[in-house]
Nucleic acid binder design. Sequence first.
DNA 1: TTTATATTGTTAATGATTCTCAATATAAAG
DNA 2: CTTTATATTGAGAATCATTAACAATATAAA
Lengths: 152, 152
Amino acid sequence: MEVYEDIFAKFLAKKGLKLTQPRRYILEEVFEMHTHFNVEELYDRIRSKTSKISMATVYRTIPLLLEAGLIQRADRSEGRERYEHILGHPKHIHWVCKNCGALWETDFNSLYPALIKRAQDLKFKPDDIELTVKGICWKCNTNDNENQSDEK
Amino acid sequence: MEVYEDIFAKFLAKKGLKLTQPRRYILEEVFEMHTHFNVEELYDRIRSKTSKISMATVYRTIPLLLEAGLIQRADRSEGRERYEHILGHPKHIHWVCKNCGALWETDFNSLYPALIKRAQDLKFKPDDIELTVKGICWKCNTNDNENQSDEK
DNA sequence: TTTATATTGTTAATGATTCTCAATATAAAG
DNA sequence: CTTTATATTGAGAATCATTAACAATATAAA
Ligand SMILES: [Mn+2]
Ligand SMILES: [Mn+2]
Ligand SMILES: [Zn+2]
Ligand SMILES: [Zn+2]
């Protein structure tokens, strides 16, 4: 039994809920995917393996996974919420290229303790940290030679 | 003429667009508000002063203000996108209490140069930085005496 | 089995955002 | 002051992601 399955089972049990087959399918798929995903993508991937799942159940399970700390909101594109699993994915910074849409992830490193300290000063008990930097990636930066002068 | 008006007018002109009355109302209201706002709140506030505005125009103007760098996406609550104006509001960290919903803002201070340096290492040209920390604020932390022991 | 409760899928409802389109404003040109 | 070409607007319809309702079904304990 995978770690995340154990965590989810215990989380559910504590709430008087059950780890059913549909919930298991969702959980499995969430941890087989290693990218940010939205609900529809998740549903489609599960659906390609079994038909014993419905969109509604996926939507209903997302908040449970969030509350269990197994996934987190990652970003939002074209109106759709996106998520990513957490276990094995320590907190990281998201770098999003405004030009090509590419996504990079890097460690917080020294920024993390700095933030924690800041939180302590504010007597704030941090839980989720979301740091996203949007800009132009190195690839798009070298390809585009049209940002040299200002205007005209 | 306010600075932001000047900026917006120039931005629009460069795109062959005009600074019309409805756009002016929106711009004014955006800079009279000093909190995060969603489109409906913005619309309602303008509406309380004049009826010469429609929801559609507000929705259409938001992307223009974003592109002009006059507002930025701040957060999202209950499915609604929220914004805040930028001029006079330097980049800041958002601290959101998961319990009472309160929002704090603090300066980036030393975190900012650290992030910029990190960007340089990645050859990434940063544009927007969004740092939100969710957790429990000091008020909720002291009021709640139910988080002492773990369970049972 | 029986029973009480949680879960599911289907389908309808909701609600924010976007689109359509005809009417109107705007600014330049004559 | 007209004419003209283009941009803008408001009203309402259309979209589309997410939620809610509800009856049928699964689950686990008694
Ligand atoms: Mn990520
Ligand atoms: Mn803010
Ligand atoms: Zn790029
Ligand atoms: Zn609080």
